[in-house]
């Protein structure tokens, strides 16, 4: 009798709800299913999609809305190019396995990312600027949820992104940069240890309009500046001290000169009693697992688009 009463009470108090977004009137929506994230685990799933439509006329996107459930570590959307091991067709999902590996991403251009779990990123691109897609183009949405020591997922995992089309003419194409500093190592007792790089991508002068940085729990500060043709950093346009939900800074208008790019610096501290990788003196080295590894990734959005730029 008591058990029945408890079940009724529990049933009347549902857990956190999955995010919801109505599809855009024009454009397209990418949405994952709702999946469980068991206590003590990290789940990374790669979802493959084809941009809807037919023909060769491009689809121009000027408004992006991303919604992900609380507990999301990241949600990244890439264009699929060279296939090595990770692949799928429209509707396929790769759960773990090759989805954890990223050896073929040096030419999978970034489309959009969001790290703001439980919140909605609503981004209207600057006037006259839009993301360009081709009907049938293959995209991959990678969703990473954590329900462990460093981050918690109170409900289930789910991510949705709306790409709202514009019919405006004379648009400039949005370009993206994905840059990552791969050989990093942070150890117990390290205090404000920093790793920095420049990523040179501006064959012509461009304007940075948005950016965000990404690292894990030992990260204490992420900074970005435009760099000149001599690799020298200028004024800082991005600072984040939040590792779990770093700011997606929009509405920037940072000029980058020809031959320049972006300078990004990740600073880390780790308490002496902390332990990441028990097989490596408790240190954290490059990798996707939040609990045991670290990242130093910069996501930058600019116009007009040049090449799809990646820096490794």
């Amino acid at each position: 009798m008591k058990i029945s009463f408890l079940l009724v009470i529990l049933g009347a108090c549902p857990g956190p709800q999955d995010v919801q977004l109505a599809p855009p009137k024009a454009g397209f929506q990418l949405a994952t299913d709702s999946f469980s994230v068991a206590q003590g685990t990290e789940v990374q799933r790669c979802y493959f999609f084809r941009v809807p439509g037919s023909g060769t006329d491009p689809i121009w996107i000027s408004h992006i809305v991303a919604a992900v459930n609380e507990g999301s570590h990241h949600m990244n959307v890439f264009r699929v190019r060279t296939i090595l091991a990770l692949d799928g067709e429209d509707g396929d999902v790769v759960d773990g396995g090759e989805c954890w590996n990223s050896g073929n991403w040096s030419d999978w251009p970034l489309v959009m990312n969001s790290q703001e779990g439980g919140e909605i990123v609503d981004w209207t691109l600057p006037a006259g600027v839009a993301h360009k897609f081709t009907p049938g183009e293959k995209l991959m949405l990678q969703s990473h949820f954590v329900n462990a020591r460093t981050q918690q997922t109170p409900g289930r995992g789910k991510a949705i992104v709306n790409f709202e089309a514009t019919s405006a003419a004379g648009l400039q194409e949005l370009g993206t940069v994905f840059a990552t500093d791969q050989h990093i190592r942070i150890c117990p007792g390290d205090d404000n240890v920093a790793f920095a790089q420049t990523c040179r991508f501006a064959r012509q002068p461009v304007t940075i309009v948005a950016a965000n940085g990404h690292f894990h729990s030992r990260g204490v500060k992420f900074e970005m500046s435009a760099s000149d043709a001599q690799n020298q950093p200028g004024g800082q346009f991005y600072t984040s001290t939040q590792w779990a939900d770093p700011t997606f800074t929009r509405d920037l208008a940072v000029p980058v000169e020809q031959g320049g790019g972006v300078f990004f610096r990740c600073t880390y501290s780790m308490a002496p009693q902390e332990c990441a990788d028990t097989t490596d003196h408790c240190c954290a080295t490059f990798g996707p697992h939040v609990e045991t590894q670290e990242h130093c990734n910069a996501f930058v959005y600019y116009y007009p688009k040049l090449d799809d730029a990646t820096c490794f």
Partner: peptide, 28 residues
């Protein structure tokens, strides 16, 4: 002109060899 980007990082030079102190690994 620069041919590459720059990389900047902290290093604790530990091992003395041929009169110089060397970083312990490629992470530094």
């Amino acid at each position: 002109q620069p041919l590459t980007g720059i990389d900047q990082r902290n290093a604790d030079l530990v091992d003395e060899h041929v009169g110089y102190f060397w970083p312990p690994d490629i992470f530094q």
